[in-house]
Structures are given as C-alpha cells and as structure tokens.
Design a protein around this nucleic acid. Structure first.
Lengths: 190, 190, 190, 190
DNA sequence: TATGAATGAGCCTTCATTCAT
DNA sequence: AATGAATGAAGGCTCATTCAT
C-alpha cells in the first residue's frame, strides 16, 4: 500500500496558483492543474473533495501564510515607528518573494466563491495587529483612527504599487520603498 | 436604428456586469447574459465578435467612465488642496453610486484577459492628472514623488475601504470620509 | 430560426430503448443515445432536463402506451369470456409487435429510479380494467378474487412466456397461445 | 484459511445485493460494495476477476439457491396435488424469507450481462422438476402442456404478486395465498 | 493476503458559438 | 436584424481496475 504523499498537496497548490494566475480563474481547470502537478486528475480528488474545496483550502492556506508574514519570531512588538517599519518591510519582502501567492490572493479576494470563505472564516489581519494599533493609539504614536483606516493607509498603497510594478515588469527602488513607507507613516502618525 | 443599437449594447453591458459580479467571472455565461438582457444569445454576436470582445469592450467602457469620474466640467483645476479634495470626493461619489461597475473593475483588473487590454490601451489615470501632479510638485504643494506613488496614497486606501465596507454591508460615515482624505493628503503633502 | 423538431423526441426515445436493451441500464450513456439518434449529446438537453428526466419520460410514455394496448376503439366491453380473450390477445399482439418497449418496461420496472416514478404516478392497469373485473365478479363470470390476483393469473404467465421465447429466439405457436389463454381463464373463472 | 475466504465471499455477495437493490445496477460500484463488506476494493479482486465476474458468480449462486428452494430433503416426490402444493409453498417461503435475493434475481434476470450467463449455463428449473411434470402428465394429474407453460402458470402469478406486495409494502394473507395456489393449480390440472 | 493510493477512460452536463429561418 | 435550435469541445467528477507496499 502506498502512503498518501504530503508533498502532493503542496504540488497541487503550486500548480493551481500557476494555472490560475496565468489563465485566470475561469481559464483554470482541474485537468490543467493535474497536468502541471504531474498527477492524474482523479488523484486530486483523493486530496480535495472537489474544485471548490481545492480553491477554498488553497485560498485559506495562502491567506494565512500572508497573515503570518508580518511577524518574525524574535520581533520586538513595542509600539514604535521602528516596529511598524519592520512589520511593513516584512510584508513587502513576503509579497515580493511570494509574488504568485500575493497576486493570487489579490486577484481573487473578491470573487464570489472567496467572498463566502471570507465570511465563513475570519481571515482579516490578526489580533496582534489590533493590539498593536490600540497601544499605538493610546501612546499617541498614531492618530485615533478606525483600525481599518490605519491598515488601509499602511498597506493599500504598497500593495497597489507592487502589483503595478509587477504588471509593468519594473521594480521598486530601495529609496522609493523607504519613501513609500514614510508617506504611509506620515498619513497615520501625528 | 442607431438609438436602438445603443440601447441594446447598454443592456448587454448592464447584464454582463450583473452576472459577473454575482456569479463570478467563471460562473458567467453568454446565455445568462443574454437572458438577463432579454435578447437571444445569437443577437449578442451581432454586437460583439465573441465573449472576449464583449468583456474587453465592457472593461474599457467602464474604466474610461471611471477615469472621467474625477472631473466635472466647471471644475477649477488650479493646484490647491481644495482641487485635490474635489477630485477625490468626485471619485468617491462615483464609485459609491456605481458600485457594480467599480467592483467589476476592481475584481477583474488583474485577470489575464484584462491585463492584455491594459497593456494594449493606456487606461491609467489620464493626462490631466499627470499635469496636475507635476504642477503641484512644482508649486511645493505636494512632495516630489513618483506619480504612481502619489496616486497610490491618494486613492488606494479609499478604494480598499469602500470595497471592505461593501463586503461588510456597512457604510463609511462622513467624518470618517473626511478623515480618510486628510490622511491621504497628509501622506503626500508637505 | 429553426423549429424544434417533434420527431426528434421520438428518435431519442427509440435510440434510448435500443441502447438500454442491448447494453443494459448501466451500460447506457447519453452519448451512445445521441449517436444512435444522429444528434449531438448537447441537443438531447434541449428536449430533456437530464438523463433521469429522459428515462422517466421514456418509461411513462412506454408504460402508458402499453396500458392503452389492451383496448381498441370499437371494443365491446361487456363482461364475457370473449371480451377477456380479446383484451388478452390485444395485449399479446402489442407486446410481440413492440417487443423492445415490452422488454424495456419489464427489465427496468424494478430499478430504483423507476420505482420512484411508479409511486409518483399511478401507472397500474387502468380503471376500465377494474370496472370490468368487478362486473365479471358480480355476474359470477369469474371468481371473487382480489383484482391483483386476477390480473396476475391473466397476464403474468403470458408475459413470462413471451420473454422466455424471446430469450430462446423461439416463437409461441398459435395453438399454444390459445392453450395459454385457456389455462389463465380456467384459473380465474368458475 | 479456507473458512476465512468463504466468509469474505459471502460478505461480498451480501454487500453486492444490498448495494444493487438499493441503488440499482447503475448506481452500484465496486467501492460501495467494498465499503459495505468492510474490505478494500483491491481485496475484491483477489476473490473475483472483475466486476462482471462478481456479478455473474453472484447471480449463479443466488439462482441455484433458489432452484434448490423448492425441494426439501424428506420430501415425497410422488406426483400428487399435495406434492405440487408443497413445492409451491417451499418456493413462496424461500422468496419471502430471502426477499433481497429474490428481488435481485427478478430485477436483473433480463439485463444483458445476465442474459449471457443464462445462455451459457442452464439455470432453468431443474431436471427433477421436469421429471415431476412428465409423470404428472402421464398420470393425467395435469394437462399435457409444454413444461414452460406449466411452470409459468404455477409460478409467474405468485412471483408477480410477491413483488407487487413488496413494492406496496403490504403482505399476502394466508387465505389469499391458498387461493392463489388453487388458481394456479386449476389452470393446469384437469 | 490485504490494502489504500493512484489512474485513464468515460460519464453527464454546459458552454461559446454557428445555423437556418 | 433577430432568434431559438443545434453542436463540438471541454469541464468536473466517478469508476473499475492496478500499483506498490
């Protein structure tokens, strides 16, 4: 008896992202994913109930990895500008190093299937984030704004710019990167 | 005869957006669009070459309407904070009043089909915008940043927040709205 | 615009019976039926919702034709042995002349799908039959038995024998046929 | 080891009948049968060549058990009405006590696969039956009819009625049972 | 022997598109 | 110009069967 291969799930995920990113959600098919994973279409159904299940689990996995990308183990979470900058740069590093996953999440965050998942699970920014925001507000480091507003000014611009750079096949220079963070920081700090 | 044609095209556009937004890109089909437009599938092919052509033209139409949404005829385009605020609020008003079109554009701006269109045409923010940015930079109203960076800090946060509000079926309060603009403005101005 | 072809339904029915009888219920497939009907598989779905719907309608149609086979227009329905013999022979003639339909009904009368149909509709022998049985009992022509028991002795033997003859590729001789009816008649008459 | 094998075969048979009767021939699958037998699909293939082989052997086994059901060891096979009644009641008892097997045989006796088996083997009523019929004819106990005709009048009605009762979830009363036999007997006796 | 993993073939169904009126 | 009918190709999924342990 063969053993269920754990690596297979990873392969399927990778193939799925690749197919979807290059051919779009509607251009993706189980057989294309199977072919790229080098397995039979039927085998996918040993690891996932059906296509929806595969996409759901894939999205949840990628979203949660991205959620963890802000933080590193040895990180000092005191509420200082330096902490925010570190989080922000961690995030930037993650999305540039995992561009495929990032694009996948951004592209399909709003498709109906994924919408249902977002409502089912809570895949928003994690509690640690909220605590940090609250503390920073208390300490008058940042302005007393709704957390969503803070988050949007911190991350929406860089996400937008990374996608744009990718689309134009250009890169963001280091000085620009610093500049972008400074702008974001300025928008929410006193 | 011209009038009738135009009306039909509009109906098809409206139906297409509706179907796609509610059932996703992959859940959309020509016959569903036809049914919702109250015409025969075959008739769509008198107005559009094929599905891709329909989607392309639809996207271009919506994107260009959105591009125009920033400006109103009687607008004073002098480079002042007031002008930026007016542009910004025009945009906000447009996307909330045309949520369907906005969601459609946001959802599918990154799908492979649309990508090709973006590269073919130039659907970015219009020349007027660029002129305004340049003038504002010259006049030291805003910092000397890349136009993309300026644009991203001005509009990415509000776009993110509008989508989020829509997803949560909540609304942005007027004070919050002002606050959001002030943050964006702060990020790019001196 | 082409008109929906009424003959097509008939063709599909004929093909379905042929495929099912020769390859069994489980060996039947929409594409085989389509091929034998000389149409595209997709076209079947313009006439029937799905496979179940096709089989249901096919069964109901055949069963109802068979139900009508006992009677002819000019028939005298007085309760005499001659009437019973006429009914019986009509039935015999029908099943031998429509062997395919008969075999189809017999083979699949007990399959789960059909079971559900039988319960939904009432496809048993018709009211006219029941009236005739009751009258014959009142007039002491046949014994006072449950209608099902009467029906079973009248028709189960000949049905069995027709199927058996078909399986052996033999035929029932006319004297045998008369004999069979006489036996059946003896079993229920005084 | 032999014992264990036999037990497994029995389990497979039981599971197969159960699955087929409840989900139909086309709804049955090797994995469903395996699951219900509490063994792996692969194991079935150690006991049977393939699905057809399983079904064939299952049918032959059930048919032969049913063939034996008419007779009991201590039975007096003299050609009298009492003997016929005893055979008939044995058969009735068997099919009511082994309804699943009976339904299975009746349902699929005419399916193409089984047809081939019937022709290959001779699974008809056994030689003993034929002898009894011949003797009874010689002794003028029953009429000089073809054996098939005799058999059909003796057993087709009760088989039909048992299936019908099962379908309607009703039972045949004892007086009715006696009556049914008497009718059958009348139809073939002088 | 016994098994769960793996698979190519095939099934039902839908789709974008064309046909014929 | 407009349409409902028609279709080949493709999609998701399951199945009987084999593999590898």
């Amino acid at each position: 008896m063969r053993l269920k291969d754990d690596e297979k799930t990873t392969n399927i995920y990778r193939a799925a992202i690749q197919v979807i990113n290059s051919e779009g959600f509607e251009g993706s098919s189980m057989s294309k994913i199977a072919k790229l994973s080098d397995i039979s279409p039927a085998t996918i159904y040993l690891y996932f109930e059906n296509k929806d299940d595969l996409l759901k689990k894939l999205y949840i996995e990628m979203k949660s990895r991205m959620g963890n990308s802000y933080f590193t183990k040895e990180m000092n979470l005191s509420s200082t500008k330096a902490t925010f900058r570190a989080l922000w740069l961690n995030h930037y590093q993650y999305i540039t190093e995992n561009m495929d996953a990032f694009i996948f999440i951004e592209n399909f965050a709003n498709c109906p299937l994924i919408k249902r998942i977002e409502n089912e699970y809570n895949l928003d920014y994690c509690p640690t984030f909220e605590q940090l925001f609250e503390q920073a507000k208390t300490e008058k480091l940042i302005m007393t704004l709704d957390n969503d507003i803070i988050y949007s000014h911190l991350f929406a611009p860089i996400n937008y710019l990374v996608k744009k750079a990718k689309a134009n096949s250009t890169a963001i220079s280091l000085p620009d990167l610093i500049q972008i963070f400074e702008c974001s920081w300025k928008s929410i700090s006193y």
